[in-house]
Each structure stands twice: as structure tokens, then as C-alpha cells.
Design a protein around this nucleic acid. Structure first.
Lengths: 115, 115
DNA sequence: CCGTATCCAAAGTGATACTG
DNA sequence: CAGTATCACTTTGGATACGG
């Protein structure tokens, strides 16, 4: 395990993961595939346009898979790729880290830091 | 360890970590404190204005510490808080995950996926 | 149902100049 | 040196409409 922040791979990751939707989509897809409009319902505040854009970005990054069952009416299933599934626990770790930070923020500061 | 993506704590994290600079600053500060203009030199493409804004955002989030040695000329040292130091390995994990993904992208796909 | 293009408002960002 | 304010410009994102 190298320290990878050093190479600027971290920059390309953040280009993909930055923003409000990528991590949320990860969450909504972690238990199986969903259709486009199911994802919209899970997330009432995302616009049609943004959902499409974000899905394509994540697909291009290899995180999300897309299966188009040609037919009419059209049906497309989105899911996580293997890489996407490996990403979920890392995002979870961030969530746990943040909860700790907030707990500490709420807790009384150590005596040494009280003026 | 809960699945924290579920509560929307992940949304507030990403509000802080999203974008080009937060993770890079994390990297440049991981080995000790730096002054404002040192950070600018580390990162020649960040503007004066953006660096100031990002530093304040990260400070407010409890990730970065700021020590102002009142004097003239002014001197301010930025560093990671305890919370910030605990964050570094999580970002590193993302970096490692991404490198794997890219390696797989480069590698020949499994036979089952070849048309 | 899913996807894309267009149009327009809003947020983000850099350059610059100024202060303590 | 570090920080803030202003302004012009660029980018982003929602609404909408239309196509397959």
C-alpha cells in the first residue's frame, strides 16, 4: 500500500466522486440494480438532466454498469460494477470518520484546550 | 461500524471534500505545518482567493488548524488537526482503489467479456 | 421509458487591487 | 505576508421540449 495521495491519482478520483450525486447513487445502487426513474424517485431533488450526466460519468469511470434491454417502452438497469462494490466500504469509512468528527465537535474539548 | 452512507452524513462530507483542492491540501499538509504562501507554491495553479476560501472551509470542518502568530510581517501556520490526520489514510485508500481500477481497465478483460 | 439538446439563471472562480 | 472585496468571466445546473 503506497501513499497514493502523492501521485495525483487523487485528483482524477475527485473529478469523478466530487459533487452531491456520485456517492448518493453509490448508496442507492449498493443493494442491486435500479432503473433510471427509480433512481429519480429515490432522489427527488436530482433533475432528469443531472441524473443522466452523473450516471454517464460514473459509467465511464467504471463504477456503474448499464444494461439496456432494447424494447419499447425502453428499460435500462443501472448497477454497480465490481469496482463500484469495492468502493462502497471506502465511502462508508468516510462516513464513519465524519460521525466521529461531529461527535468530538459536540463533546467537551479536552481540558488542555480550554482557555 | 454502521453503514453510514445511509444517513446523509455522506452528503455533508462531500460538501467539504468535493472539488480539486481539499484532498490536495490534505496531502501537502500531512507531513507538518505550512504557511499560506508555501501552500501556494506547492500548488502553482490555485489562486490566492481560492486557497483562502478552501482553507477556511476545511478549518470550519475541523480538518485543518490555523495558527496566527500576530506580528509583522504576518505569519500563519496551517496544519492538520487530529481529525485531519485520521482522514489521510482514508483518502489514501481511495487512491489505492483507483489505481486498481485503472490497472484492471488497462488489463485484458476476462474471456467471458470478449465478444 | 430513457436520453439528449437548448436555453437561461445561478453559482463558482480568477485577476486585481486594497488593508492591517 | 496573509486576508478580503470587487468585478468580469466561465461553468454549472434546472426547466423544458423533443426524439428513439
Amino acid at each position: 500500500m503506497k501513499n497514493v495521495v502523492s501521485d495525483c491519482s487523487i485528483e482524477s478520483i475527485m473529478r469523478v466522486l466530487s459533487g452531491r450525486w456520485p456517492t448518493l447513487l453509490l448508496y442507492y445502487l449498493k443493494d442491486g440494480t435500479k432503473r433510471f426513474n427509480e433512481l429519480r424517485r429515490d432522489n427527488p431533488t436530482v433533475s432528469h438532466r443531472m441524473l443522466a450526466l452523473e450516471l454517464r460519468k460514473l459509467e465511464a469511470a467504471g463504477i456503474i454498469s448499464r444494461i439496456d434491454h432494447d424494447g419499447y417502452p425502453r428499460r435500462v438497469d443501472y448497477g454497480l460494477t465490481e469496482a463500484g462494490r469495492r468502493l462502497v466500504p471506502l465511502i462508508d469509512a468516510l462516513g464513519n470518520w465524519w460521525e466521529e468528527v461531529e461527535a468530538e465537535r459536540g463533546a467537551a474539548p479536552p481540558l488542555s484546550q480550554v482557555a
